[in-house]
Design a protein around this nucleic acid. Structure first.
Length: 227
DNA sequence: ACCCAGGTGGCCC
DNA sequence: GGGCCACATGGG
């Protein structure tokens, strides 16, 4: 079911090329900046960092909080985020040095997930976004859009915890796709498509549109081919 | 003048 | 473990 939904969304919107960023480090910073914040505002903040040439973990770790605040102000919650962003970057530099991305094995990466969750300001969604989009591990990211889309399609997503919902998505996709590398690509694309769909149909239109999509599934879902 | 956005942590029960 | 609340800007 959920895999079909993925196919429908893919057919409707096509490839999304996520995560939109110039570097892995930018993804990590953006993952924190985008918490409960429209991407449009995050882009402004990231642009400010780039103009000052400080869009990196090392640069943020070395920068005074007050200066970070000014640059990331458009992304909202800027006092909180500046403090947390700096603390996060300091942690990474102290424990992993400057160029650790791409040099960690699976075990280290999944241990890093637990470390990330212990850092103030990083919850499950942010940690999982980093695992999927930075470290390219098969981890499905659950966000507000995912809950909404699941809710409209199947009923109450509210009673499902983050981990439960994540397992539901992961298991259904794993059932269809056994190749681990391809799994990463599907998780990547699926989450991006869910967000895209959410942005396309805001407010009251949302549920109705999902139901339309689900109806489309029951009518023509069989005909949609794997890509 | 509202409402919402690619969440998280703190506090209370 | 769940139910509220603060955190803040910019766009519709």
């Amino acid at each position: 079911m959920l895999y079909r939904l993925y196919q429908i969304l893919f057919k409707k919107f096509g490839k999304q090329y996520w995560w939109p960023a110039d570097s892995k480090e930018e993804i990590m910073l953006g993952a924190i900046l985008t918490q409960n914040t429209s991407w449009n505002n995050v882009e402004k903040a990231i642009k400010n960092l780039k103009v000052k040439n400080v869009c990196s973990i090392k640069a943020i770790a070395d920068m005074p909080v007050e200066e970070i605040e000014i640059l990331i102000k458009p992304s909202g919650f800027y006092r909180q985020k500046a403090k947390r962003l700096k603390n996060f970057c300091e942690y990474l530099i102290e424990n992993y040095g400057e160029n650790f991305i791409g040099k960690m094995n699976d075990k280290e990466i999944f241990e890093l997930r637990n470390e990330l969750l212990d850092i103030k300001g990083i919850g499950k969604e942010t940690a999982d976004s980093m695992l999927l989009y930075v470290f390219e591990k098969p981890v499905f990211v659950i966000d507000a859009y995912t809950r909404r889309i699941y809710n409209a399609a199947y009923g109450n997503a509210q009673e499902l915890r983050y981990d439960e919902l994540r397992e539901i998505f992961e298991n259904e996709i794993k059932n269809v796709c056994k190749n681990k590398a391809k799994l990463v690509k599907i998780y990547n694309e699926y989450h991006a498509l869910i967000v895209r769909f959410g942005k396309e149909y805001k407010g009251n239109d949302y549920e109705e549109e999902i139901k339309k999509v689900m109806l489309l599934y029951s009518n023509s879902g069989q005909k949609i081919r794997k890509h």
